[in-house]
Amino acid sequence: MNRRDLFRASTAIGATGAVAGLAGALPAAAATTATAAGRPSAPAGSPLRVHIVMFDGVEELDFAAPYEVFSAARFFTGRPVEVRYVTTSRPGFVRASYGSRIEVGHAWAPDEADVIVVPGGGYARREDPGVWAEIRRGTLPRALRAAPREGLTVSALCTGVMLLSAAGLTRGRPCTTHHKARPDLEQQGGVAKNARVVDDGDLVTAGGITSGLELALWLVRRELGADAATGVEAMLEYEARGTVWTR
């Protein structure tokens, strides 16, 4: 364990007492968890696999916030959590909206994911790298269109929802996005809801650049249980805000 993980683990133990010991066995009660909807989750030995989609022009906070939340969630659940950055291009470096260079070591593999998270970025600058460039290129929308299967949740936040729209995944379904992209979402057939997070089962969307925190915290709550979500909130000293719309 590196020093950063050790600090986080110590914070997690102090905040909730939910972790019995990182090197020891978890309590028997942690062998399984329940989702927010009350249905049993996968067995503790089966990891929650989260893939965050990366592309040139992606907004830094859009991908970093979900990565942090899902990665921290492993301290508060008996179920392993695996988080990776993936790309429909060749693995390597992407340059984010504000110039950060992020190494993406994994290729697109939706059959190996339980949750896909699509960030946004660059929607206001149509000629620059970002969502519009990915829509024009077509590779990512086609990959998203082919991804849905039983057991997979496709999610997106901010203008990343417009990549789902380009893939036809939001047509006729409740969803949300950044307020400036909402007219486009509705024009393309999305049923926009005035909510921070919209959960339509296997399609979960969130609106606004900072909504990656709410999106990830909601999915942690749904997939790993309320204790995991509140544990992450205590660790990050952040409380999820806004309305979550569900059926």
Rank of each mutant, 00 (worst) to 15 (best):
D202T: 14
V220R: 05
D202V: 11
R173T: 05
D184T: 10
A167G: 08
V204H: 00
L203W: 00
V161M: 01
L236S: 01
T153F: 03
A147C: 12
A229H: 11
L164N: 03
L157A: 07
E223L: 15
H178T: 08
C158N: 09
N194E: 15
T153W: 03
L219D: 00
H178Y: 15
S211R: 01
L185R: 04
D227Q: 14
S211Y: 03
D227R: 13
S155D: 10
E150G: 15
G225I: 08
P148T: 06
N194V: 10
R221V: 09
A206E: 06
A156G: 08
V220N: 05
A229Y: 14
D199I: 12
G208Q: 03
R222K: 10
A195R: 07
G168T: 04
S155E: 08
G172W: 11
G207D: 04
R171E: 14
L169R: 04
A228H: 05
S165K: 04
A234Y: 11
G207Q: 02
H179D: 10
A192D: 10
V197W: 02
T177G: 12
G189I: 12
L157I: 14
T205C: 06
T170W: 02
G231S: 11
G172N: 13
G225M: 02
G151K: 09
E150A: 14
K193M: 15
R196F: 08
E186N: 14
L157S: 03
D184Y: 07
L164H: 03
E186T: 15
R222G: 09
L157W: 01
T230H: 11
G190F: 07
L215C: 06
T153E: 07
V154W: 00
T230E: 15
R182P: 04
A195G: 09
T159K: 02
R196M: 14
A166L: 03
T159F: 03
G190P: 05
S211I: 05
I209Q: 09
A234W: 05
A206G: 06
Q188S: 14
L215Q: 06
A206M: 05
M162T: 06
G151D: 11
T170Y: 00
L164F: 02
G225Q: 04
L185C: 07
L163R: 06
D227C: 05
W218H: 15
L185K: 05
A167W: 00
V154N: 01
G190E: 09
L219V: 01
A206S: 14
D184N: 11
I209N: 04
T177A: 14
D184A: 11
R196A: 15
C158Q: 07
D199Q: 13
T177Q: 09
A181P: 04
A229F: 13
P148C: 02
A195L: 06
T153D: 05
E150C: 09
D200R: 04
A147T: 10
C158L: 13
G172H: 12
Q187E: 15
E186V: 15
V204E: 00
A192E: 12
T170R: 01
